[in-house]
Design a protein around this nucleic acid. Structure first.
Length: 230
DNA sequence: CCATTAAATGTAC
DNA sequence: GTACATTTAATGG
């Protein structure tokens, strides 16, 4: 399939490139669709390709030695992922799973160096998003270590609405399917506690939820809940 | 305050 | 009907 150059034109890693350069990059790329729940690549496997998410949402997961899954972060459309080379790694540091049906472009990892060398701004923009992710991971870890469960869950809901929120009549809806179990993986608690919190918040008119689907109807109230005390 | 256990109810395929 | 999501109560650290 011939891909349109408008797919990449506005995106940070390619923002300083002209149409012809983008055309070349797209001709190197493979486009693929992933079902909800499909694994794009696995932690520890050889990093053969790097990716750009065009549509959908991904969960990036790490598995602890005792088999527990931690959701490290989410990837939104327009972001590069699986860029192991930027981390000086030859294997993927985490597993990427499609949280919703998704479409991603990918390139052979050997092109990474050539893009970095050849295209102005590609490296700096990529490292910028990498740095932003590290910051996000760090604040998540700090929250996990210092804040109570209720505050962590509130913070995670807010982060997901910021990353993928879509306005509806009711409020802001998280743009991909999320289960209580997913949220418990993100916050280091249990699905039961998440269920109780969401039920309580629903009664207070802060959220509205159904199966795999959450709408935040009162973001300000959640913001207050994400802060200690209260 | 929160995890665990267990049981019941919903909901999608 | 099966499988999975969600809720709720009970119990204990």
């Amino acid at each position: 399939m011939k891909l349109d150059t408008s797919l990449l034109t506005g995106l940070p890693p390619f923002s300083r490139l002209d149409r012809e350069q983008i055309r070349q990059i797209l001709d190197d790329a493979t486009s693929r669709r992933y079902e909800e729940g499909a694994t794009i690549f696995q932690e520890g496997h050889d990093a053969e390709r790097f990716y750009l998410l065009l549509d959908g949402y991904l969960r990036v997961i790490r598995t602890t030695p005792d088999g527990e899954q931690i959701i490290v972060l989410h990837i939104s459309p327009g972001q590069l992922f699986g860029i192991a080379k930027a981390l000086q790694r030859s294997t993927y540091p985490a597993t990427a799973v499609a949280a919703a049906e998704s479409i991603a472009l990918s390139w052979p990892m050997r092109l990474w160096e050539s893009y970095v060398a050849q295209y102005e701004g590609f490296a700096t923009e990529s490292y910028k998003t990498l740095g932003q992710r590290l910051g996000e991971i760090q604040t998540t870890l700090t929250e996990m270590a210092t804040q109570a469960v209720e505050q962590r869950v509130a913070a995670v809901l807010l982060r997901m609405t910021n990353q993928s929120g879509q306005k509806t009549e009711e409020g802001i809806e998280i743009g991909f399917p999320v289960t209580r179990h997913n949220i418990s993986d993100m916050t280091g608690t249990t699905l039961h506690t998440v269920s109780r919190l969401l039920s309580a918040w629903e009664k207070d008119g802060i959220v509205r939820s159904s199966r795999k689907h959450i709408v935040v109807t009162d973001p300000h109230a959640l913001m207050l809940l994400s802060r200690p005390k209260g």
